[in-house]
Simulated scan of single mutants.
Amino acid sequence: MADKAEEGGLVFHPMDQFIIQPIFGGDVTWYTPTNAALWMGLSIVAIIVLLVLGSRHRAIVPSRSQSIAELAYGFIYKMVEDICGKEGLRYFPYIMTLFMFIVCANFLGLIPTSFTPTSHFAVTVVLALAVFLTVTVLGFVKNGAGFLSLFWVSSAPLALRPILAIIEIISYFVRPVSHSIRLAGNVMAGHAVIKVFAGFAAIAAVSPVAVLGITAMYGLEVLVSFIQAYVFTILTCVYLKDALHPHH
C-alpha cells in the first residue's frame, strides 16, 4: 500500500468492496458461506421482519412497521394491476418478492462495511433470467403459438414486417442482459464513487469537500436503491403483460 502511494498510485481501492470473500476463511467454492450469501440471507430476514412480524399485530392505527409494509404492498399491487390488469394479480406474490428482495438488499448495502449482493452480475443475471424464463414459458402456456404474434408487428407495412420481426426477436432475447446490467451497473457505480470520496476524505486539504461529496452521494444512493428496485419490478410487469396479452 505504501509502495503504491510512493509511486503515485491510489492508496484506496474502490472495487475491493465487491470482492466475494469466505466468512470463515479458506477458498471460495460453491458450498462456501461467503459475504454475498450472508447479506442475501440478511435481506430475506429483513423482509420477514418487515412484512411478517411488522404486520403481525394489525391495528386500525398502524405502527411504523405496519405502515411501511402496507405502503409496499399497496404500491406493488397497484403497479401490477395497472400494467398487467386483473389477470396479472395472480402473479403478484412473485413480483412483490422480487421488489422486496432487491430493495432490501440495496438498502442494507448502504450500511458501512456491508456487502451489496445486487452489485454482482451473478445475482442480477439469475433474477433477470428467472423473469425471462418465467415470462416466456407463461406466454406459450397461456397463448400457445399465438405468443409468437408478439414479434409480428401487424400494424406495420407488410414489406417491413419480416425485418421488424427479426429486430423484435433480438430485442426480446436481449431483455435479460439489459435487465440485469442496469441494476448491477448502477448499484456498483454508486458504491464505487462513495468509496472514492471516502478515500479523499483522509487527505486534510480536500477532506471538507470529500465529506460533502460523500453526503451528497449517499443521499443519491438511497434514492437510486429504491429507483433501481422499482425499475426492475416495473420492467418485470411490462414483460408479464406481453406474455399475458401478446396481441396488444
Rank of each mutant, 00 (worst) to 15 (best):
F92L: 14
R56C: 01
P33C: 01
Q17N: 08
V222F: 10
H13N: 14
C84V: 02
H248T: 13
I194T: 12
N106P: 07
G54E: 06
H57P: 08
L244M: 14
S154C: 04
S114G: 02
L133F: 15
Y239M: 10
L51D: 09
S114Y: 01
L50P: 14
Y94P: 07
L148A: 06
Y172K: 05
G85L: 10
G85K: 12
I76Q: 06
A36T: 05
A201R: 11
P93Q: 10
A2Q: 13
R56I: 06
I163E: 11
L138I: 03
Q17C: 09
A72V: 10
H248A: 06
T236P: 00
A204P: 14
L110G: 06
A159I: 12
M79W: 07
A128F: 02
I76M: 08
G146D: 14
K4L: 15
V135G: 08
V52T: 13
R161C: 08
P208Y: 00
A229P: 07
K241C: 03
W39V: 05
S67N: 05
K86Q: 13
E87Y: 06
Y218L: 01
F92N: 09
K78W: 08
I227Q: 13
L42F: 12
I181M: 09
P112T: 00
A159T: 02
E168R: 10
V174H: 11
A165Y: 01
V193L: 15
V187R: 11
V45Y: 01
K4Q: 15
S178D: 10
D82T: 15
F99Y: 08
L38T: 02
A69K: 06
P93S: 11
V11I: 12
L127D: 03
L71V: 07
V177S: 13
L150Y: 05
P33A: 02
C104Y: 00
L89F: 09
S149C: 05
H247F: 09
I47Y: 01
G190W: 04
F173R: 00
H247G: 11
C104E: 02
F12P: 07
P162M: 04
I167P: 01
L183W: 04
P22W: 00
E70L: 04
I60A: 14
R182L: 11
A46Y: 02
D242C: 06
I203E: 06
H191C: 03
S67L: 12
T233N: 03
A46G: 12
W30P: 02
A105M: 10
T136M: 07
I234T: 13
M15D: 15
C84W: 09
F107V: 00
F121M: 13
A202M: 10
M15E: 15
V80G: 06
L223I: 15
Y73E: 05
A128S: 12
G109R: 04
A184L: 05
A156V: 03
P246Q: 07
S178E: 10
G109T: 05
L89G: 04
Y73R: 08
L110E: 05
R182I: 08
P33V: 00
E87S: 09
I83L: 11
I194H: 07
V123N: 04
V123W: 08
F75S: 14
P117M: 08
S67G: 04
M188E: 02
V177C: 14
L148T: 04
S65R: 11
A202W: 09
F101V: 09
K4Y: 15
L160C: 03
Y73N: 12
N106R: 01
L51N: 12
M15S: 15
P246K: 11
